[in-house]
Amino acid sequence: MHALKSSSPGFCGFGEAYFSFVHKDEIKGWKKHKRFALNIVVPVGGIRFVAHDDRHNSCTKGNFFDVILGVGFQYSRLTIPPGVWVSFRGIEDLNLLMNIIPEEHDPTESENITLNSISYAWV
């Protein structure tokens, strides 16, 4: 199972790869990165990702993108560009995501807001 190659579209360099567990039915987010894209894969379980674009000059402004990633679902890489909000929910009992980012973690580089700040039905 590949995650990301240096020749892949969306590859912007390597700074850090990190893993996160997401419990079943746990919803995390909304989070937006200011400078860099996220490159996310789900090698264990299944995770539903929702992206919301509120960038002022974007042709997809106001749109939502919803996908479930994982080995038993769709195994692929999800690239979230800078400035797009993302939230996610665990589907299986054990869910693991890996995120590859082009620079080391910087807590001032991202923004977080509460789940009810963006109107989305997780049903």
Rank of each mutant, 00 (worst) to 15 (best):
I113G: 07
D106H: 00
V42E: 02
N95R: 00
S76G: 13
K61L: 11
I40R: 00
I101Q: 05
K32E: 04
K34G: 11
F64N: 04
Y120C: 00
E92D: 15
S117H: 06
V86F: 14
H105S: 10
F64A: 05
L38W: 10
V71T: 10
A37K: 10
T108N: 14
E92Q: 04
V42I: 10
I100M: 03
S110M: 14
P81W: 06
T114E: 15
H105K: 02
V71C: 06
P82A: 13
D54N: 14
I100Q: 00
N99C: 15
I113Q: 10
R89K: 14
L38Y: 11
D106F: 11
P107V: 06
F64R: 05
N39H: 14
D66G: 07
D93L: 06
D53L: 07
S110W: 13
C59E: 10
N99G: 07
A37I: 08
V71A: 09
E103H: 12
V123S: 14
E109G: 02
V71R: 12
I68F: 03
G45H: 02
I47K: 01
L78P: 03
I68M: 04
A121W: 07
L94Q: 12
Y75I: 08
D106C: 04
V86G: 06
S117F: 04
R55H: 15
V50G: 01
V44C: 02
L69F: 01
I100W: 03
K61F: 08
N112S: 14
N63F: 08
Q74V: 07
F65N: 12
F65I: 03
L69N: 04
Q74G: 05
N39S: 15
A121N: 15
I40H: 01
R35G: 12
A37L: 06
V123G: 12
I91Q: 00
V41I: 15
I101T: 09
N112P: 02
T108E: 15
Q74K: 13
S76D: 13
F64K: 03
T60S: 07
S76K: 07
I100D: 05
E103D: 09
K32R: 15
G70V: 03
N63L: 11
F49V: 00
S119A: 11
D66R: 09
V44H: 02
D106A: 07
C59P: 13
S87Q: 02
N112V: 05
R48D: 01
G90I: 04
V67A: 01
P102W: 11
W85R: 07
R55P: 15
G83R: 11
N63K: 12
N63P: 01
Q74C: 08
H52W: 12
F88V: 09
P43A: 00
G62I: 05
H33Q: 10
K31H: 15
W85I: 09
V67L: 11
L96V: 14
G83Y: 02
H56Q: 09
E92L: 04
E92M: 02
L78N: 06
G45C: 02
S119V: 05
H52C: 06
I113L: 06
V86L: 15
P81N: 10
L115K: 01
N99W: 10
